[in-house]
Design a protein around this nucleic acid. Structure first.
Length: 122
DNA sequence: AGGCTGACATCGC
DNA sequence: CGCGATGCCAGCC
């Protein structure tokens, strides 16, 4: 498994699926985005991409989880509606230098941040 | 205790 | 090439 567990806050002996998601999302560099599937795959459960979204749903009410940096495989701001305001997600992304047009990230492949690649697991 | 739901992704037809 | 159905895990009713 990924060393993400090490990144988890000390005290948590068992890393829940969400906590791992929080950790990965929190590690997303400024001006970069990732996809649910990428996180899911990084965690080893690519089929559980839905769970990633569910995790972010919990993460949404958390303080330091940049959920706006997480989009679907299509680069579309699927979860914008779950923010305080639907436009907030795009605003945040644009402030980070990410160009968003029509709820879709422009040059998605360029700003895409692959955890399994950047974090270099194993 | 059992079943539905959920910010997705992928395979199948 | 487009739409439909399935899978996954955990939380909530």
């Amino acid at each position: 498994m990924a060393p993400i567990k090490k990144i988890l806050p000390s005290g948590k002996k068992d890393a829940s699926f969400f906590e791992q998601v929080y950790a990965v999302v929190a590690l997303i560099p400024f001006g970069r985005v990732t996809s649910y599937g990428a996180i899911a795959k990084f965690l080893g459960t690519k089929m559980s991409a839905r769970m990633v979204g569910w995790a972010l749903n919990n993460a949404h009410h958390l303080p330091h989880v940049p959920a706006h940096r997480v989009v679907n495989r299509n680069g579309q701001l699927s979860g914008k509606a779950h923010f305080d305001t639907p436009q907030q997600m795009q605003e945040l992304l644009e402030k980070e230098g990410v160009v968003v047009h029509n709820d879709c990230i422009v040059n998605f492949t360029t700003v895409f941040w692959d955890p399994s690649k950047e974090l270099a697991i194993e």
